[in-house]
Design a protein around this nucleic acid. Sequence first.
DNA 1: CGTCGGCATGTGCACGGTCACAATTGTGAG
DNA 2: CTCACAATTGTGACCGTGCACATGCCGACG
Lengths: 338, 338
Amino acid sequence: MTIDLPKGRAPSIRDVARLAGVSHQTVSRVLNDHPSIRESTKAKVLQVMEDLQYRPNRAARALSRGRSRTIGLLSAESAYGPASSIAAIQDAAQEAGYYVNTANLTTVDTESIEAALEHLMNQSVEGIVVIAPQVRVFDALEQLSIDVPFVTLQSTGRLDNSLSVDQMTGARQATRHLIDLGHRSIYHLAGPQDWIEAEARMRGFLDEMWEMDVPTMAPILGDWTADFGYRAGRELLRRRDFTAIFASNDQMALGFMHACREEGLDLPRDMSIVGYDDIPEAAHFWPPLTTVRQDFAELGRRCIALLLSNLNGGVPIERSDPIVPELIVRGSTAPPAF
Amino acid sequence: MTIDLPKGRAPSIRDVARLAGVSHQTVSRVLNDHPSIRESTKAKVLQVMEDLQYRPNRAARALSRGRSRTIGLLSAESAYGPASSIAAIQDAAQEAGYYVNTANLTTVDTESIEAALEHLMNQSVEGIVVIAPQVRVFDALEQLSIDVPFVTLQSTGRLDNSLSVDQMTGARQATRHLIDLGHRSIYHLAGPQDWIEAEARMRGFLDEMWEMDVPTMAPILGDWTADFGYRAGRELLRRRDFTAIFASNDQMALGFMHACREEGLDLPRDMSIVGYDDIPEAAHFWPPLTTVRQDFAELGRRCIALLLSNLNGGVPIERSDPIVPELIVRGSTAPPAF
DNA sequence: CGTCGGCATGTGCACGGTCACAATTGTGAG
DNA sequence: CTCACAATTGTGACCGTGCACATGCCGACG
């Protein structure tokens, strides 16, 4: 008793129209919630759609409208950063009726970045969210003269249209915490130098040390991984000329703790450690990690809101208030032992 | 000295054709690497494309070909599972010229699953990769009578077209390891019961215990999070009637270790712990975690290969050899103390 | 020398929506 | 009853690309 007209292909708007006894344009109006539609007509059309299991063809819609309703997400494959912000971005976009297309950076070289951007551009994305804010990515964006708006997560805005997050304040809070506890020899395990974010955190550390008049030791440039934190720890702990360390993310902090344990250090008595990010596991490290929490979900949402307002309103993306990170004090920090 | 004909809109193949002095069809042939094209013509067209910064319009292409070249990725927002497999999926798809559209499950209820699937279907994806294999997801897939092929990562195939991974063997290896060390009272911290994968691991645990003739205690059903591992640990450790635990993922193992520490247990002397997944951080837990490694990247690649062969060849997806996980013995396991 | 076949290229339409505009119907005031 | 005007619906073109088919060209072969 099915009234399937279409042979092999999916039903189109015209199939629906025929069965509902209206024109294809009326069906289109129903789809787009046009105000001038008689209630009864609308109901009839919707009924036929239901019967036919009709789904609008996205490609056709994108073609005729000239808008793809898709945004591109450029993320780093690396173990960096909680996945929660990616999820938040996707949720927010989805809710706004947008689709998200993700491209991964397998390596951080310029070639790979350009390839990923090409991939996204080929999809006619309307906007791009960059979640791996490295300096090179911006260089590539400029060089390719990308003409779609883009937003970047977690960077202290180098560009006008970037979502500003106060990484410096977070880093300063962490540093200040250690200084307040009485530490005077503090190392900083930084992230890769070409990550805008890593640079901002390092800057925050250095600024705070400077202002508090504590002699600074040169930061160690890492790669975000726990492995690096471990190796750096093995190296640094040969000379125990410091009592505290501030790692630029929680993974490196974990690796460093591992090295401390192998050296037989008593944490936090012999060494205070602060991380950054507050990944869900950080509360369960031993001792539980003092770290800087960022609301990644909120960040993701704001990021999309910013981008969409730009896409739809045509108004240039404007910076909103930076999200201020919060220091979470747990068991991995204590006054120095002597 | 630019010869821009198009006013505001992006150049189309007809613009290219006009400037190159050929028909639009010839341009199309160049785009699709048609064999019958004179070398000189091809070069001329390519040159014009370059000059115009021409990019094929994906929507138009999808519309006329009837294929979107997009695959949908259904993943769980939850802290579950290493991000590496997602990255691998995206890389593999990208390499094959496919685009990946991700939908997130914010919650695990049926409604949310259906919404996510709707979202993907509305995009006319050609295939779906399910990375959060819960029983409910499959129910929803069946109920919505999804007509695109789909593949699932990390499940012991309930459906014909699922990538089979030998979760049971991994779980048995872990369990056997503990038994061989001399443990006779072993708990299992399982994942949520409706995750196919969690079920398989639990089954593996129970089977091995049965075969080795070790009395089994009822598994505890968790939610994959470190928080749960911690709370379960606090609870279980009130009565110390066991000497080892096998957690269904590394995060829960970490939480459990945290609880052990708070109870003042000496690890691994007083308690042996095995995890599952071998996330990059696991090697840096203290003590470093004995766990079961799965090659998530390989898994992701195979997953896409399977799906694509199905999409293109029309041949039904066939199971390949299951990937056998590997037990990584580190410092968190030891013979029971007495 | 005519015809056949393969290569290179052109012509027109289809894909499934949306848009601009025209046409039809309905409603209330004069 | 008629007209102005709003509400509702219909008509045809168009978005950019690929496909089916037609065409022109050239060399080979009987």
